[in-house]
């Protein structure tokens, strides 16, 4: 039954996919080129010493991979969810279909995961072509990015289903997503941050996603470390799913 909800979103996507190319694909690519190559020249040759011999572009490519997974996931889990609850009311139509709450949530979450998979894979290919990623371990980094996306998708679903207007999203984007993007190890090691901030950065799911992806493509991963990140991200995804079920039930079944 969740498959029916998934195919609904897929059909819908066929009509609007062009626009998502820009935010989902070109955006991360622009960041990679500007930061990796442009700014990378300053970092690598900088008097500050750079990253101790590692090319900056190779450092941030996996970081951007994980960060774009987060951004795609959050973007697809905010306004579309609110729209399906409030404006176009597709969820209500599905309930009448009849699909259960779990089918509706899982179907939509699966669609978001697919969107994250597409953008992550596309980014990985381009990063490889540009020489920013060189390891075959990238084949595991893409699923890692999808898992990172899921760790955001389900909690944000739960959050979005409790919102009645979009002002909460503003706070989410500006005070949660944006700072995570900038401080959770995407652009520089979190060790650069002052102690308290570093500790906070290390509990964010994005930092675990970034570290997992980076460890894989740069070949610095340890089995224990990677499994730890995977477990942490899975915990977020599963906990979020549980909350999302509760939020959706509260909103849709009254």
């Amino acid at each position: 039954m969740a498959g029916r909800a998934f195919s609904f979103w897929l059909t819908n996507y066929r009509r609007v996919w062009r626009g998502t190319l820009i935010s989902g694909f070109l955006g991360p690519l622009f960041f990679l080129v500007a930061m990796g190559f442009g700014l990378g020249a300053l970092v690598d040759d900088g008097v500050g010493g750079g990253l101790g011999g590692v090319d900056y572009v190779r450092f941030i490519a996996p970081g951007i991979l994980a960060a774009q997974a987060m951004q795609t996931a959050v973007g697809e889990s905010t306004f579309p969810v609110m729209g399906a609850l409030k404006w176009q009311r597709q969820y209500h139509a599905m309930l009448a279909a009849p699909l259960g709450i779990a089918d509706i949530v899982l179907g939509h979450v699966a669609f978001v995961a697919m969107r994250v998979a597409i953008t992550s894979a596309a980014f990985a290919v381009v990063a490889a072509v540009l020489g920013a990623i060189t390891s075959w371990w990238v084949l595991l980094a893409v699923p890692a990015a999808i898992l990172t996306g899921l760790a955001f998708t389900t909690p944000v679903f739960a959050f979005a289903a409790r919102q009645h207007d979009d002002s909460g999203f503003n706070v989410l984007f500006r005070f949660i997503v944006m700072p995570m993007f900038l401080f959770s190890g995407t652009f520089f090691p979190v060790e650069q941050l002052p102690g308290v901030l570093e500790a906070i950065a290390r509990v964010t799911p994005l930092w675990h996603g970034v570290e997992l992806c980076r460890g894989l493509v740069m070949g610095t991963a340890t089995a224990a470390g990677s499994l730890g990140h995977v477990a942490y991200l899975t915990l977020w995804a599963a906990g979020g799913l549980w909350l999302a079920f509760a939020s959706f039930r509260k909103r849709l079944v009254t």
Binding site: L39, V43, V47, G48, G49, G50, L182, F187, Q192
Partner: peptide, 15 residues
């Protein structure tokens, strides 16, 4: 946020 991320975080790497 951008200023502190780039200026402080990255700035230390760049000098």
């Amino acid at each position: 946020f951008y200023l502190f991320s780039l200026g402080v975080g990255l700035g230390a790497l760049i000098g």
